[in-house]
C-alpha cells in the first residue's frame, strides 16, 4: 500500500512585500495509512505551514505532495476543495465553528458540500459523528453554550462526518486545560484505533506521547523523526483519572 502522505522537498516562502519569508525549507515526509503522528517544534518552525499544505488549505511554493496516491500540487482550487471534503478532516486550534449554527448543523456542514453524496442521510451521519465524540446530548446547542472541550469535540465530529482517511489537527488542545486535553487525545486515539490516520501538531510533551511517532521541525526542516517508545494510552492509566472517557466530559 502506498503511503497516505508523501512529500518531497516541500518549500514554502511567504511573500511579505519585497521580502520572502521562508517557512518550509525542503520537507520530506512519508506517513503510512493508520499512523498517529505528532509534529513538534519551536514556535515559528513551520508546523502550521506544513499542516495547511497537507490539508490542501494552502499550496507549497515548490516540491511535490502526493496524498493517497494522488498528486495534489498543481490541482485547481475546486479539486482541492473536493479533496478537503472527501479525504481530509481538519481540526483547528481555535475550533472554527459557525457561531450561529447548532452543533448538529456545524457537523453537517461538510455534507452540504458533499457532491459525491457518499453519505446517505446527512442528519443521521452528523448525529452518529457527535455520538462518536461523546456529545449525543449536546446536539442542538450553539457553540457559545458549549465548553471549550465540547466545542473541540464538535469540531472533531465535523472532521469525521465525511469518513476521511486522514485527520489533521493543528494544536487541537492548545486552548484547553490538561484534563480536557487528555479527553480530546483519547478521542483521537479511538479514531486511530478505528483505522483513521491522525496527524497532529502540539507543543506539549505529554500530548505528543499519545501519538505513535514524533516528527520534529526546526526552521522549516525535519530534524527528528522517531517512533515513540513509551506511548501513553489515555484511559489505560488509573492515574489519569477515571473521568477521561468520551462520555465523562458531560
Amino acid at each position: 500500500m502506498p503511503p497516505i502522505v508523501s512529500t518531497h522537498a516541500l518549500h514554502k516562502v511567504y511573500q511579505m512585500g519585497a521580502v520572502g519569508v521562508p517557512a518550509l525549507r525542503g520537507v520530506d515526509l512519508h506517513i503510512e495509512e493508520g499512523e498517529f503522528v505528532a509534529i513538534m517544534g519551536a514556535s515559528g518552525s513551520g508546523k502550521s505551514t506544513l499542516m495547511n499544505i497537507l490539508g490542501c488549505l494552502d499550496v507549497p511554493s515548490t516540491g511535490t505532495y502526493v496524498l493517497a496516491g494522488r498528486q495534489v500540487d498543481g490541482l485547481s482550487r475546486d479539486q482541492r476543495a473536493d479533496i478537503r471534503n472527501q479525504v481530509i478532516g481538519f481540526v483547528f486550534q481555535g475550533f472554527n465553528l459557525l457561531p450561529r449554527a447548532s452543533a448538529l448543523e456545524n457537523v453537517e456542514l461538510p455534507l452540504v458540500y458533499d457532491r459525491a453524496r457518499r453519505v446517505g442521510d446527512p442528519r443521521r451521519a452528523a448525529e452518529a459523528a457527535l455520538t462518536r465524540v461523546g456529545l449525543a446530548d449536546r446536539m442542538t446547542h450553539a457553540p457559545n453554550r458549549l465548553s471549550g472541550g465540547e466545542q473541540q469535540r464538535v469540531a472533531i465530529a465535523r472532521a469525521l462526518v465525511g469518513n476521511p482517511r486522514l485527520v489533521l489537527a493543528d494544536e487541537p488542545t492548545g486552548n484547553l486545560d490538561t484534563r480536557t486535553s487528555m479527553e480530546i487525545m483519547q478521542v483521537f486515539q479511538d479514531l486511530n484505533d478505528q483505522g483513521i490516520t491522525v496527524l497532529l501538531v502540539t507543543h506539549e510533551q505529554d500530548i505528543s506521547r499519545c501519538a505513535k511517532r514524533i516528527v520534529e521541525l526546526r526552521d522549516g526542516k525535519v530534524i527528528r523523526d522517531a517512533a515513540i517508545g513509551d506511548r501513553y494510552v489515555v484511559g489505560s492509566d488509573p492515574r489519569a483519572g477515571g473521568t477521561a472517557g468520551p462520555g465523562g466530559a458531560s
Partner: peptide, 16 residues
C-alpha cells in the same frame, strides 16, 4: 470572511 474560510475548509467550492 471567517465563515467563508470555514465553509471552504470543509469543501465548499468557489461556486458554492
Amino acid at each position: 470572511t471567517r465563515e467563508i474560510g470555514i465553509r471552504m475548509a470543509v469543501g465548499a467550492r468557489e461556486r458554492d
